[in-house]
Simulated assay, not measured.
Amino acid sequence: MTSAAFWRDPALPFAESRRAVQNRACYRPHTHTTLSIGAVDAGRSVFTSQGHSVPLHPGTLVVVPAGCTHACNPSPGMSWSYKMLHLDAAWAEGVLNAAGAASWPSHALVVKDAQAYQAFTALNQSIFSSACAQSKEAAIRDFVLQGSWRAGEVVPLAPAAADSPVAKTLALLHAQPEDAVPLPLLAEKAGTSPRALVRSFRAVTGMTPHAYQLDLRVNAARERLRTGEALASVAHELGFYDQSHFHHVFKQHVAATPGEYRR
């Protein structure tokens, strides 16, 4: 039986979890503003990031730093079951720093370790249980500090040089995520041609500038929807053509409609 559920608690604003069973939904390449850990429970899937593809089997974890372009989708014609935990970057780094532990990895990891998977499964069972917020926070802290999720296969990233056209474009897009900045203007401000910018931008981020702009808006929409903001207001203020366009783009990135996510 297919099912999907999100977990959020106002008492724990630094965490969000999702679990899906026998799901066939697919994701467009996207990023998160959070530090994220996912696990495959059943079925076969493929994790892609920065041009690299890694097949995933049940019991595998993926660890994704904030801002890392990625997608994880079921193998063609198959369904899969998975769970995903998103943690506020500042909160997670604070937990690690306070304990003198190493910082969150700057690269995506694929972790094939039974102990790590079992620990993550136990954590999610706690998160979706009726336990109190204090118990859930303690469980999340313990898992982050336990560190079994660190020992994984690194998926290489291609960071942009600080003075490169890509870095300039990223700075511009993050400064005004609600605006649809046309490619010729982006290229002009970055000091390069539109074709060269698309090529270099995709090599670094895994997306075109246009796709990246949509991704920024979806992440902004997620933040607003978590507070219960009206769908029409979110769509309008983030520059989507209309609610239908918002609905379509959001579902491609989140594998849930805006309404489902807000609930």
Rank of each mutant, 00 (worst) to 15 (best):
M1C: 12
A4I: 13
A5M: 15
F14E: 15
R18G: 07
Q22D: 12
N23R: 13
R24S: 10
C26S: 11
C26M: 09
T31Q: 04
H32N: 10
T33Y: 12
T34C: 07
I37C: 07
G38T: 03
G38Q: 03
S45G: 10
S49C: 04
P55Y: 03
H57C: 12
P58A: 04
P65Q: 02
P65L: 06
C68I: 14
T69W: 09
N73F: 08
L87K: 01
A89T: 05
A92T: 11
V95S: 04
A98R: 06
A99N: 09
A102E: 15
A102K: 15
H107G: 09
L109Q: 06
L109N: 04
A114Y: 11
A116N: 11
T121D: 04
S130M: 03
S135M: 06
A139G: 14
I140N: 10
S148F: 06
S148Q: 08
P159G: 05
P159M: 11
A162L: 06
V166S: 01
T169N: 03
P177Q: 10
D179Q: 13
P184D: 10
A187W: 00
E188P: 07
G191K: 09
G191I: 00
S193M: 08
R195M: 07
R199F: 08
T208Q: 07
H210L: 15
A211H: 10
Y212S: 03
L214G: 02
R226L: 14
S233T: 15
H236G: 13
L238P: 02
Q243T: 13
H245G: 02
F246P: 01
H248K: 03
E260K: 12
